[in-house]
């Protein structure tokens, strides 16, 4: 017997919320990046769940696109992190005060 779709949706919503909370609360750029990845993967789970329950392959194809984009984003993100680190020797966003919020 298959688990009902609500289970998957709730799980991915919870994962997404954890990701959002991580971005908002955590004070390390690398952890924030990981939280963003968590958000994207929660979305992937939603796509796959819908795709499976609707019997359409579209959602699964989309996941490949999302993963590719996430990989490209991670590459650029880490490069930017390194270029900031060269100036600052820290990755705490609170120290990034050159430009006042």
């Amino acid at each position: 017997m298959q688990a009902p779709i609500e289970y998957y949706l709730v799980l991915s919503a919870v994962l997404f919320a954890i990701g959002v909370a991580g971005v908002v609360i955590r004070r390390d750029v690398i952890v924030i990046l990981m939280s963003i990845e968590l958000m994207l993967n929660a979305v992937n789970l939603t796509f796959i769940a819908f795709s499976r329950f609707m019997g359409s392959v579209e959602g699964q194809v989309i996941v490949f696109f999302v993963m590719t984009v996430a990989a490209a984003e991670a590459v650029v993100g880490l490069a930017i992190v390194i270029s900031v680190f060269r100036f600052r020797q820290t990755l705490d966003p609170r120290d990034m005060q050159l430009l006042k919020w």
């Binding site: 971005v23 924030i32 963003i36 994207l40 979305v43 796509f47 984003e73 270029s83 900031v84 100036f87």
Partner: peptide, 26 residues
């Protein structure tokens, strides 16, 4: 560098919301 970092973090964060919206509409 700092500007790029802030833009990237906010942009990627926003992407997450946008994508989740697409998933729910799907």
């Amino acid at each position: 560098a700092e500007s790029a970092m802030k833009y990237f973090l906010i942009g990627a964060f926003a992407t997450g919301f946008f994508l989740y919206g697409i998933a729910l509409i799907y």
